[in-house]
Amino acid sequence: MYSKYIYIFIMIAVIGLIRILPVTLIRKKIENRFIRSFLYYVPYVTLAVMTFPAIMEATNSPIAGAVALVLGIIAAWFGLGLFPVSIICCVVVFLLEFFI
């Protein structure tokens, strides 16, 4: 119970600092090319790592999760936004789990 709040506090503090430090400290542009490149790639890589294989473990049937992943990628590839892609993934799992 006690540690639950420590976890949440750590997250809020870290996220808050990450967001606030640049606007208070960094007034110039970051020049180091490696750091800029590294920071540029981090968000995409980290989301990819967190999505798979976790999506297969989130659903009752791993197959439904895998199909949702593939169809979600296709939907996003053809330019659908956040909301439609999420809905497609949900609907796919909902329908597939009638059969699996």
């Binding site: 990819a48 979600g72 949900c90």
Partner: peptide, 17 residues
Amino acid sequence: SALSVALYGMFLAIIVP
């Protein structure tokens, strides 16, 4: 089970384009 993939759908919408 179906709703729990919404979050991953959003992640995909961020990384795929």
